[in-house]
Simulated assay, not measured.
Amino acid sequence: MAVLLVIPARHASSRFPGKPLVPLRGAGGEARSLIRRSWEAAQAVSGIDRVVVATEDERIRDHCRAFGAEVVMTTTAPRNGTERCAETLDRLGGRWEFVVNLQGDAPLTPPWFVEALLAALRRDAGEAAMATPVLRMEGAMLSAFREDRRAGRVGGTTAVFDAKGRALYFSKEVIPFTARPFAEGEATPVWHHVGVYAYRPAALEAYRRRDPGPLEEQEGLEQLRFLEMGETVLCVPVEARGRPFWEVNNPEDVPRLEAMLGALGQP
């Protein structure tokens, strides 16, 4: 059975309006939009049969079609990327083994992150509704998270999970609490949740029929709805392999991403 990869993108954002179209300059100084760089990242993932951008915005649609992406127009009803993926699944139809949500603000997502999710769900044999990657923070990343919180910036997410990898909670706070400082490359007990998801289609449909619960509404984290529904969410540990990783959550993240693109030598 085939795998569908959806890149949900909306123009309206309370923290960063127009975020998908913001230009990011790479190593050669070329500016490419955030959504285009995310689409290019999707092309590098093996085992994907179809890649589409899902949006309700004509500006994003026209921009994506201009660089060759397939676009599915959705309604304005979806409240988050997971609901937009569910609506996209309805519109496309077909029999899909899994649906991947590669969010349009994470162009540095390595392909092996997504490939690890698909492998984990196939090993799971049907228990988990979805899987999502987690990356153990080293000292520098944890310091960046803490600095964002001190400055009142909320973006990156942390995760805690049990010995079998089943998620216990996700938060925009830094959890678990740890007070001590860590050296730049030192491993910490904190896991960064990477905003990529692989769903079973049935779980995606069930999600869409449920309203957000109090935890999802409080944290603003779409994956918490699965936990509030009593579903199993797999946290799949992945390794950066020396590659820098960050997401664009706030305008302040743009220069950070551009510096990382430059360090990777990406045009």
Rank of each mutant, 00 (worst) to 15 (best):
R37M: 04
L4D: 08
D253F: 06
I7V: 08
E58L: 10
D57Y: 07
Y207W: 06
E231F: 12
V99N: 04
C85G: 06
E58N: 02
P189K: 14
S143K: 09
R208E: 15
L261D: 01
E173F: 15
R91Y: 01
D253I: 03
R15G: 00
A2K: 15
R95W: 08
R225W: 02
L24K: 13
P189S: 07
Q266D: 09
A41F: 02
E30G: 11
A69F: 01
A183W: 12
I60R: 05
M229G: 13
G93M: 04
P255S: 04
R209C: 07
G152K: 11
S33G: 09
L102Y: 01
R65M: 05
F245D: 00
G126Q: 09
V114L: 10
S14D: 14
H11I: 02
R95Y: 09
S171Q: 10
P107Q: 05
D62F: 14
G104T: 05
P133R: 09
E115M: 11
V196E: 10
E70V: 05
L108C: 07
C85S: 12
P244F: 04
P237H: 10
E186T: 02
A198P: 00
S13M: 07
R208H: 07
R200L: 10
R79F: 15
L135P: 15
P111S: 04
L117Y: 14
M141I: 11
G230F: 06
R210D: 01
F67C: 07
P244M: 03
P107S: 03
A128F: 15
G26R: 03
A131F: 12
A31W: 05
